[in-house]
């Protein structure tokens, strides 16, 4: 049978081309949604203003630090951990048959989620930079140097990349845009159960253990340390005593778990 003659598509896979196309799909959608971008950017700005000035007037940070300088690194991490857009986008693609179409095409099945995660991380980087500018306006400062600050940024981008994979995996499991939207309410407390807004020292012991071992706490502590911002007591918890190493380990662990889970789920023939 002369299948090769009638088959215009080379069977070999070209992951980079596929990934780039998938990434440009995500970025093209963003370009058409300036209102969505404005909203995504406005949320962290609001957080800085609301928490910085309302909580900041009442909460004292141990060690005579400024609350807003304590808070801003935590808000960076809250934004980096925002896996909701990735979850909703993947749930929508999955529910509407876009994923099925891609899966019926001769393209690399790993490259498509990778491209989407990369594009999401790129967008996240833009959000982080804008938020850093807002932080500088309300009194947050980098007290170390450009090297550690870039280290903090790298850590945040890596953490966000990992969180995106969690979001995409959840979206593939849920496969329904509305349900994913409703589930996003449950993601919020994960950010609250940490040292982002208040030091964990005052929490009940069981809650403190959870908060101390929350990856969000480790990354927050790492960013504070790298930028020379006020830090909270570590309560002797290992991740808070070695926040940079703990953040790297957490990021690696999340990627090691969710990249294979997500790609397998994306690629596997299902119902």
């Amino acid at each position: 049978m002369t299948t090769t003659a009638t088959n215009p598509v080379p069977a070999r896979s070209r992951p980079l081309v596929d990934g780039a196309a998938a990434a440009s799909r995500v970025l093209a959608k963003l370009r058409h949604d300036p209102a969505g971008i404005a909203l995504t950017l406005a949320a962290p700005v609001m957080l800085v203003l609301v928490f910085g000035y309302i909580f900041g007037s009442a909460i004292a940070v141990p060690g005579s630090g400024d609350y807003r300088e304590f808070l801003v690194p935590g808000l960076f991490v809250t934004i980096a951990f925002n896996l909701i857009p990735a979850m909703i986008a993947m749930a929508r693609d999955s529910g509407r048959g876009v994923v099925d179409r891609f899966r019926s095409m001769p393209i690399s099945r790993v490259a498509v989620p990778f491209g989407q995660a990369a594009a999401t991380a790129l967008y996240g980087l833009g959000c982080l930079l804008l938020m850093a500018a807002c932080g500088l306006l309300v009194g947050w400062r980098i007290r170390t140097g450009i090297g550690p600050a870039l280290g903090a940024l790298g850590l945040l981008v890596a953490f966000q990349f990992a969180a995106t994979w969690i979001g995409m995996f959840l979206g593939l499991v849920i496969r329904n845009e509305e349900a994913a939207g409703q589930l996003s309410v449950l993601v919020l407390p994960v950010g609250m159960l940490s040292n982002v807004f208040v030091p964990t020292a005052g929490m009940p012991a069981w809650l403190r253990t959870i908060a101390d071992w929350n990856p969000v706490s480790a990354v927050t502590a790492a960013v504070r340390e790298l930028c020379g911002n006020p830090t909270a007591p570590t309560n002797g918890a290992w991740p808070l005593e070695h926040p940079v190493l703990a953040s790297l380990l957490w990021t690696a662990l999340l990627l090691a778990v969710f990249v294979p889970l997500c790609t397998a789920r994306y690629a596997r023939p299902r119902d």
Binding site: T3, T6, N7, V9, P10, A11, S13, R25, A28, K29, H32, D33, R96, G97, V98, D100, R101, S104, M105, P106, P269
Partner: peptide
């Protein structure tokens, strides 16, 4: 030979699997 099959087919499903947010 799923990969070879995918190189030979087009699929239009029951729902319009196009991106609403793109032109």
């Amino acid at each position: 030979d799923a990969a070879l099959v995918r190189g030979s087919i087009g699929l239009a499903g029951q729902h319009a699997a196009v991106d609403d947010d793109l032109t």
